[in-house]
Structure formats: structure tokens, C-alpha cells
């Protein structure tokens, strides 16, 4: 049994090959090895959602996902969404609705918000709250976050092409 494994994956569109300790979770791999520190660790039990990022296009908890199990996967972190049109709308809405204070939950919150906007275009406030239940925010009371997501959904409903 080896205590190191070699993995190949893409991170933010770039191919990466690296040696990892099997016990290292994906968030630590990204933060410590690739210095992508936008993915935050809030609990490391999969509860708070701060470490949420995209694996193969779907939001996932990077603190309870082993890096070694991501061989062959496509991982996207918050740093990769500067040019993403949905995320640009969400960024503007988060700022306008004061949906962030300390900013620690924000990257994970945006990942979930983007998933809601793209997967559930019809979501109302109640559904948005249910979908957000896996992302804890200790600062905002969620009011601004729910409003921001609603704002983006409304804007997109009025402009279905998303352009």
C-alpha cells in the first residue's frame, strides 16, 4: 500500500497532475497545493457549505471529497468564474442586495446560488431557502442572499436568452 497516489484532473480548465496523500481532502489540495484559497473551510464535516465548489458541473462539498477520488474529474473553484455570465449577474445582485458581510461563506454560497439559478429557474423564495439550507451564513440572516437570487431569476425570466 502506497501512502501517495498520483492523480490527473482539470482544475479551472487547466490540466493538473499531482501526487497526493489519499487522506487529503479536495479543499486542502486546492488551497495548499494549488494555492486556490477562494474555497473556504468552515467545518470539515460537510455541514456549513463554505467549501462548496463544482465537480463535473455539479456543486459538491470539497471538505468531504478526497482529492485522490477526483482523478479524471473537472473541478471549478470560485476563481474560475470571473468571466461566467451567470456569476457576473450574481455578483452584481449580491452586492446590490447586501448579500455578504464578512465574505467567508460567499464563494460556497455563490456556487449554490448559481446551481439554483441554472437548475431551478422557477424557484420562489421558499424554494430558494430550502435549496440554500446547506450553506450557512452567520452574518446576513440570509435576507440579502434570498433577495439577490430572486433578483437574478427575475432578470433572467424577463430575458430568457440569458444574454
Amino acid at each position: 500500500m502506497s501512502d501517495r497516489s498520483t492523480i490527473s484532473l482539470t482544475v479551472n480548465g487547466e490540466p493538473v497532475t499531482a501526487e497526493v496523500e489519499p487522506r487529503q481532502h479536495l479543499a486542502d489540495f486546492l488551497r495548499e497545493k494549488l494555492l486556490l484559497t477562494g474555497t473556504h473551510l468552515g467545518c470539515e464535516h460537510g455541514v456549513c457549505g463554505a467549501c462548496t465548489l463544482m465537480i463535473d458541473g455539479a456543486p459538491a462539498r470539497s471538505c468531504i471529497t478526497l482529492a485522490v477520488a477526483c482523478d479524471g474529474a473537472a473541478v471549478r473553484t470560485i476563481e474560475d468564474f470571473d468571466d461566467d455570465p451567470v456569476m457576473a449577474e450574481l455578483r452584481a445582485a449580491f452586492s446590490a442586495e447586501h448579500a455578504l458581510q464578512c465574505g467567508y461563506c460567499t464563494p460556497g454560497m455563490l456556487m449554490t446560488a448559481r446551481d439554483i439559478v441554472t437548475r431551478l429557474p422557477e424557484a420562489d423564495a421558499a424554494r430558494i431557502r430550502v435549496e440554500l439550507s446547506g450553506n450557512l451564513c452567520r452574518c446576513t440572516g440570509y435576507v440579502g442572499i434570498v433577495n439577490a437570487i430572486q433578483r437574478v431569476l427575475k432578470a433572467r425570466a424577463g430575458n430568457p436568452s440569458g444574454a
Partner: peptide, 21 residues
């Protein structure tokens, strides 16, 4: 006024103590 500090956090560019190497 919208917050000056928002942009860095919305892009994952905030710098928290755990981010310091």
C-alpha cells in the same frame, strides 16, 4: 452606498488568515 469590500470576496480573492502562506 454599495460596499467597497464586496468585489474581492465575490471573486474568492479575500485574504483570510488560513490563506496566508
Amino acid at each position: 452606498v454599495l460596499r467597497k469590500e464586496d468585489d474581492r470576496h465575490l471573486r474568492g480573492r479575500g485574504q483570510f488568515v488560513g490563506d496566508i502562506k
